[in-house]
Amino acid sequence: MMKFFQHSFISSLVAGFLLMVSSASYAAPIQYITDIYGDRTNQLIGYGVVVGLDGTGDKSQVKFTQQSIVNMIKQFGVQLDGGINPKLKNVAAVTVTAVVDSHKGPGQKLNVTVSSIGDAKSLRGGTLLMTQLKGADGNVYALAQGNVVVGGFSAEGNDGSSITHNTPTAGRIPNGATVERALTAENDDDPTVYLQLKKPNYQTALNISKHINQTFGPGVAKALNKGRVEVAAPVDSEDRIMFISMLEQLEIEEGKTIPKVIFNSRSGTVVFSDNVTVSSAAVSQGGITVRIQEDQYVSQPGAAIGGGINAPGRTVVTDDSQINVEEKDGAAMIWPQGTNLQEIVNAINQVGATPTDLMQILQALDEVGAINGELVVI
């Protein structure tokens, strides 16, 4: 009886806590915050050749391009002597990549990306010849062929000057591949569906299982850990699809996450998540600027010792260094407990701090534990 009471008390406490914290959270459909295990994409890759280039293909030093063309021509009954070294400046060896969904079927189209692996200058105007696209298991899942669309260009003058815009050695072929073999999803006949949280969170996982059980009945869902929820699903295909479609529409209160401050040290951009505050802190912004100016003076006497009056003398180069040190007065800024970090950044910017100064101040605040969140410098 005591164990039952304790269990009931803890369950009631947990339920009351979830209800209390979820009221201030953001509700989102399950399909926005989770992925269904098995519903995934797969990478495909192949090796091919692009022909029809206007003299911008691989040079003769790229042997694998020549070998690829020779092997292809032999398949059409054209016999070439072993000593022939064709100059194929209109051909480029490329890698072809694509992404296929696990539920794509034969006959459906895929977008492909074509990238040069030789020393071709541009793929503009080229055509990809039929290329097999393989998965990680070595099986062929699609065939690619078509005209390459390139967003960049390159031009070169006779004097060696050149100009390049974007990347002319890579391009795309929209709908350039056809699926030849279906990839079966691993969980299509599994009586259990696993929901994987895109942002693992204990509170969110418990909210998902709790809401599913309230909707479909007790014991249907169980939170396994902060990133995975197990859900019992029908085995029949139509019932399963109907169940998952209803499951994805359930509105879930997301658990609170640690506020983050993202600082881009290269551009000085600062991005805050909601409710990033600081503890009581004082910041003194100032610094010392050292400027060094180097000058050289050249003097050449009119005559050297023992020479005539017009005889040139030895050239003398004299270095002149000027060092100037400036110290800025650093004014201390004090913020009370709970101040929003955005207010601090605005105040620091108003006193003329550089992005480097701002980064150092944020890192110092994080080091003393004054930022109520996580600082990420990229």
Rank of each mutant, 00 (worst) to 15 (best):
I305L: 00
V283Q: 08
E326A: 12
I292H: 14
P168T: 01
I323H: 08
I208S: 04
V148F: 03
S60L: 03
A364K: 15
R228L: 13
S115C: 00
V276N: 04
V94F: 01
H211K: 14
E374R: 02
V271H: 07
D39T: 05
G219A: 06
D320N: 06
A136M: 10
P29N: 15
G152F: 06
D295S: 08
M242K: 13
S25H: 09
S209V: 02
A92M: 07
S237K: 15
G268R: 12
A120I: 06
T315Q: 04
R266V: 10
Q66P: 11
E156F: 04
N372I: 11
T127K: 12
T354P: 00
G77P: 14
E253L: 09
V220Y: 05
A27C: 11
G157I: 07
L183Y: 07
N85H: 13
E343I: 12
E238P: 01
K328V: 11
R266F: 03
E374H: 00
P336W: 01
D81E: 15
A370C: 07
E251F: 07
A364F: 09
D274K: 05
S8K: 10
G373W: 11
L206V: 01
A185I: 03
K210Y: 01
K222M: 00
S280C: 08
H211N: 12
P106I: 10
K87A: 10
R240N: 15
V368P: 14
G52F: 03
N90T: 10
Q132H: 07
F216G: 07
D190V: 00
G313R: 07
Y37M: 04
L206F: 04
V114R: 06
K260I: 09
V235Q: 10
H7D: 13
V229D: 14
V231G: 09
K260V: 08
M72L: 15
V351K: 05
V278N: 06
E253H: 00
S299I: 02
V94T: 02
N85E: 14
A281R: 02
R172Q: 05
